Simulated assay, not measured.
Amino acid sequence: MERLQRWVRNVFGGWFHLRRCFPADLLDAMAQAISEGERRHLGEVRFAVESRLAPGAVWSGLTARQRAHQVFAQLGVWDTEHNTGVLIYVLLAERRIEIVADRGLAARVDPEEWSGICSRMREEFSAGRWREGSLAGIAQVHTLAEAHFPSDGRTNSDELPDRPVLL
């Protein structure tokens, strides 16, 4: 039954609101927040929003978490000097938020801290505050990265693009 419900959400859900929820000015603000935050630590933050999963992928059992790991690999978030890449993944159709951290950060940050960020973002998104939720999530990820991998005084090499990607 759950598989059928997920399939229906991905086929008929509010996935068509992608540009309304994440307009160009919000994407610009998010890119700026990512860029500014990365100056304080040695991590790399990526933000990806996907409107929906392919119906066949849902029917075969692909979860939002599994898809987040695929996107993590696809965007090369794992490929950073200090293994400190972080992906914030939003699946609109299912209203799911997943954070995937590379092994450098994953070894030092309790999974409950990542879950807390997702919960805060979900609360904001549920209230229609896409800007506030996105920017708060980015800021919280920067805080964790800075606590565990602070900048060593050198400029962060900015290994990955800062602009959020819409899938």
Rank of each mutant, 00 (worst) to 15 (best):
A139H: 11
D102F: 07
T84N: 07
F47R: 01
E81T: 14
M1H: 13
T155F: 01
A101T: 05
H82P: 00
V90P: 04
Y89P: 08
E98I: 12
P164K: 11
A145I: 03
W59K: 09
W114N: 04
L87K: 11
G137P: 01
Q66F: 02
E159S: 07
H69Y: 12
A64N: 01
V71I: 15
V11S: 06
L87C: 08
N156C: 01
E146D: 08
I99M: 12
G14E: 15
L105Q: 03
G13E: 05
Q32V: 05
A31G: 11
L135P: 04
T84E: 03
E94D: 14
Y89W: 07
T84V: 05
W78N: 14
P111N: 09
V90N: 12
S151M: 04
S157H: 09
E98L: 07
V90A: 15
L62V: 13
V58A: 02
L75E: 14
W59M: 14
R103P: 01
S151E: 04
Q5M: 08
V109I: 15
A147D: 08
A145G: 01
F125S: 02
E112I: 00
W130T: 10
A139D: 14
V141N: 02
S60C: 03
S35M: 04
L18V: 15
E123W: 09
F72K: 04
G128N: 11
R3C: 09
G104W: 06
R19E: 11
G85F: 04
I88M: 12
R20S: 14
S115C: 02
L91E: 07
V165R: 14
N156K: 00
C21R: 13
R154D: 02
G43K: 04
L27K: 10
A107S: 14
E124M: 13
G13C: 05
W78L: 08
V11T: 13
L160S: 07
A48R: 13
G14D: 15
V109F: 01
N156H: 02
G37T: 06
D158N: 13
R131H: 11
H82N: 14
F149T: 00
S157T: 13
S151H: 02
A54H: 14
A33T: 09
R163I: 01
A73E: 15
R103K: 13
A29D: 14
S115I: 00
R6P: 00
T80K: 03
D162S: 09
E81S: 12
R39F: 00
G43C: 08
R103G: 00
A136Y: 10
V45W: 05
I97A: 08
P23I: 05
R120I: 09
S126L: 08
H142T: 06
A24Y: 03
A31S: 12
L75R: 14
E123L: 15
A68D: 10
R122V: 02
E2I: 13
G37R: 03
A29E: 15
A147H: 12
V45S: 01
Y89E: 05
P23Y: 03
R9M: 10
R103F: 07
F125K: 03
R108L: 15
L135H: 04
E146S: 12
Q5H: 07
R9F: 10
N10G: 10
I34K: 01
N10A: 07
P23W: 03
G76S: 09
V100F: 08
